[in-house]
Design a protein around this nucleic acid. Sequence first.
DNA 1: GCGTTGGCTTGATCCAGATCATGGCCGGAT
DNA 2: ATCCGGCCATGATCTGGATCAAGCCAACGC
Lengths: 259, 259
Amino acid sequence: MGNVPVTMSSTRPTGRLPAFDPEAGDGDELNFCSTCAFGEVCLPGGFDKPALKDLHCLVEHVGPYRAGDSIFRVSEPFESIFAVRAGTVKTCTVDEEGREQVLGFHLPGEMVGLNAIHPARYPCDAIALDTVYLCRFSFPALAMLATRLPGIQQQLFRLLSADIGKAALLASDYSANERMAAFLILLADRYAARGFSATRFRLSMARGDIANHLRLAAETVSRVLRRFQDQGLIKVEERDVELLDSPQLRKMARCILHG
Amino acid sequence: MGNVPVTMSSTRPTGRLPAFDPEAGDGDELNFCSTCAFGEVCLPGGFDKPALKDLHCLVEHVGPYRAGDSIFRVSEPFESIFAVRAGTVKTCTVDEEGREQVLGFHLPGEMVGLNAIHPARYPCDAIALDTVYLCRFSFPALAMLATRLPGIQQQLFRLLSADIGKAALLASDYSANERMAAFLILLADRYAARGFSATRFRLSMARGDIANHLRLAAETVSRVLRRFQDQGLIKVEERDVELLDSPQLRKMARCILHG
DNA sequence: GCGTTGGCTTGATCCAGATCATGGCCGGAT
DNA sequence: ATCCGGCCATGATCTGGATCAAGCCAACGC
């Protein structure tokens, strides 16, 4: 692994808070999750010390992956699920005409690979969009542990169930404005849930990826972002975004975020 | 429950195979799943007899529901998941403008309610489209049982994971023809997996529901079905469909069904 | 230096499918 | 019988966003 120059955010003042140092010690087996920065999110709850110790034996810290590296590829046999510790992961399928289909983006604290349990093979590619560090969980081992620790089983059920809902969100038929607003608000909420800024963050994915994910043309994404900026809703500079009027954006997106 | 006149299919010769009689005895606790017609599908695997007995204590047969009856409503507290024994269930959300959004249709042998685990409340309505019989599983009890029986835990993980993939399918951006073809082929495959005819079946949902689910206008659904019929791909009569050229339909849909 | 390449923006045009309007059919209520 | 409402089909028109085309800019290799 050696000495890795972690240049997570280079110059501009983004919302990234504590300069996460993945090379720091993982802590002892009783509280590694607290140094893992997102441990209490990906496997929360008041686990007692033996439970944490069991988890610690199970998890494997992997990375760094560089932008463009693949974490797993479609049709590889399913073995592990991953939690993002740092960076952003894109999951996507490629149909036989070579057209890419972006399934989603995974931020720090979120899981990747849950959709592979059923087919027992990864149904999609997982690609690092920037410098990515992961926690890797052998799924068979995790499932075995879950039979002993109901809290972990419960958390796995919750994570899986939540992903069903997430996947359904984007399935509906809404306007380009509504979809873009919902995308920005969802990102903001997810960053906020992880302790990052909810108003300033970096779009680690290319415009084309956003477009693909929202089922729009890249040109439309450009135009909608510009429109939002002209209306004073956001400020865009390269890939850095600042939400200037989140309430208004949320209002535009409320039909998608239902509730 | 009394003597219920089960008129599952009234006159026309659909693909429905064995006239399922939900009033028949549920069998003893050692093999109730074999009389439940779909038991080996919703909870398959070679469970030993004690496992089956445990399951039997857990499951509750409910129904009949009539067309339009709700099985659960959005925001009701989550308590149970359901397996469809007979009939078709539609799940849908309604946004605050009153616009309906059809999430999916659930055929015999399929589960309903898995997306409610995470929010701990049902995130959608579940509506019977015709005469519906269900198996009801208390989820807390099922989860508890799953800690003792790894096979059941495994199956729950698989079901949840499969639903993520299913939800992602319709999320992509394809033409009306492709979406309609995929819809028909998926229905055929799902019926086939349950032992029904893969070429003749009944669309228990209204055209408007299909349209909504596929993010099309009802008029477009009409036109596409007519076009398919004119091309000799299918034969439509009211809500009964016969697939005349499944390979061609599958070819049209292959980009959605990826693989 | 210069050309190249990839990501992004902007304008002009086009089209699949939405929307609007109409009418037919069927089944249940009066 | 008659009415009414839900469902479905079909033709005419409209439009949001895709597509095509052109150009900008920064990073990179030679």
